[in-house]
Write a protein that binds this DNA or RNA. Sequence first.
DNA 1: TTATCTGTTATACTGAATATATAACAAATA
DNA 2: TATTTGTTATATATTCAGTATAACAGATAA
Lengths: 127, 127
Amino acid sequence: MIVRIDFNSDEAFYIQLCNQIIFGIANAEFREGDNLPSVRELAEDIGINMHTVNKAYTILKQEGYVKLDRRKGTVIAINADKMKAIEELTDDMKVILAKAICKNISCEEIHEIVNKIFYDFLSMDSE
Amino acid sequence: MIVRIDFNSDEAFYIQLCNQIIFGIANAEFREGDNLPSVRELAEDIGINMHTVNKAYTILKQEGYVKLDRRKGTVIAINADKMKAIEELTDDMKVILAKAICKNISCEEIHEIVNKIFYDFLSMDSE
DNA sequence: TTATCTGTTATACTGAATATATAACAAATA
DNA sequence: TATTTGTTATATATTCAGTATAACAGATAA
């Protein structure tokens, strides 16, 4: 998987990194048990500091996307605490749906967008 | 409308303030033309600095939720650039849906959550 | 055993963002 | 005229983001 950092983005590098790896898991470029590059290797590849990569990995671990395997390094391991995931999803969703309502976007339009994003992620699954 | 700041949150005060005002517009506590408290008054009320409130108002203005009325101060005024709103919504939605897919939340479950949030916002409309 | 690789931790530094404080300005209002 | 509006200018303290160098323990491969 190719990870790219947008150095002009206002989003922190470690957040960009977390999100891209989460995208990679969602579209099955990364699967359970796959190992991520080492913090030093990935840092070298994308041109950022080792500690910034380490910070991203630490957050992914805390949030249940990866775990440490002493033999393989950092590997994909989903801890699907669905209750907690739904709570966080709902909180995040409230903010963006409030914005959508303000901007006169309908419930039906939201559903269409959700369907399209879901389809895009899952259709990459089989490639 | 009662605005509260969570001083223990890791979210910046000005972000909390923006989101709460957006919530207020979404559930029709604030309507087109209503005026917000002055930056000094609101700052005094919720116990934060005037410039932090001003920062929130400035962002709300840039993002098309309020405008300046020299007679009434800052008033609710939605600039519904729907194209732009949908683009931003889609970007934000991708991140949270990727997380949802990782945590085995189904497309149907997402739709249910969207419906519930929409219903909650719009049912406050008539109160 | 030795050398290397893994994540991790400690320390230190720079720059940017956040939040506060005091002060002043022009335009509008009472 | 005095007050209120948003706005702008400084200044300061704190935290966050990112980098840099270094070291550590556990696992692995020579």
